[in-house]
């Protein structure tokens, strides 16, 4: 599974979840007033992760660097520019997570925490009747985060296939052929 295949699958995913121009426009609106809160969101995000001893142990000694990377990523998420290079960057982020051996559980938990933090911000803004608050921004943001997670997850899947290939000597097309075999009853 190369990047081209990932992007093809991703296009299908994007259509299925309805991440279309209307939703992306809502994201641009949300991004406008969420961007000043990125530092706060990043700090809270890592506070939550550090509250758990397992993730805290994994993050030990890396926090300051990771905060900078995370800050840049959230700014990218809220940038309002969602062209192909944006989604290709998500694939690269996935590869970096695999290289740094971030457990998939941490990644999924991180996405979950981030969704809650961002949705809370949108909800608070709506309660305060802030101008430009878009009531459907949360849904659009949720779709975008799902799309990013989809792309990042594929890197983990690719890594597992590469490991099987290396261990068994089977080529990736052969492993794919085995995966695609029709299931037999029993």
């Amino acid at each position: 599974m190369n990047d081209e295949v990932i992007m093809r699958d991703f296009d299908a995913f994007r259509k299925l979840v309805g991440l279309d121009e209307l939703r992306l426009e809502r994201l641009r609106v949300a991004g406008e007033w969420l961007r000043p809160k990125v530092a706060e969101i990043t700090d809270t995000f890592y506070e939550r992760l550090l509250a758990d001893p397992t993730t805290a142990a994994f993050l030990d000694g890396k926090i300051e660097h990771l905060k900078k990377v995370h800050h840049t990523w959230i700014e990218d998420i809220l940038s309002g520019v969602y062209d192909e290079s944006f989604f290709v960057r998500q694939i690269k982020i996935g590869k970096a997570h695999v290289t740094n051996q971030v457990p998939p559980l941490f990644l999924a938990s991180g996405f979950s925490i981030l969704r809650v933090l961002l949705f809370d911000q949108i909800e608070s803004a709506a309660k305060l009747n802030q101008p430009d608050t878009c009531p459907r921004c949360s849904r659009a943001l949720g779709r975008l985060l799902d799309a990013c997670q989809f792309l990042i997850d594929r890197s983990y899947e690719q890594d597992r296939l590469n490991r099987v290939s290396k261990a068994t000597g089977m080529s990736l097309p052969l492993i794919e052929a085995l995966v695609m075999l029709k299931q037999q009853p029993g």
Partner: peptide
């Protein structure tokens, strides 16, 4: 016999045998 199944399994066994 399912051609696709025979093919994939035979190639897999040979790869494993080689490794």
């Amino acid at each position: 016999m399912d051609e696709a199944r025979v093919g994939a399994m035979a190639a897999a066994m040979l790869s494993l045998g080689e490794r």
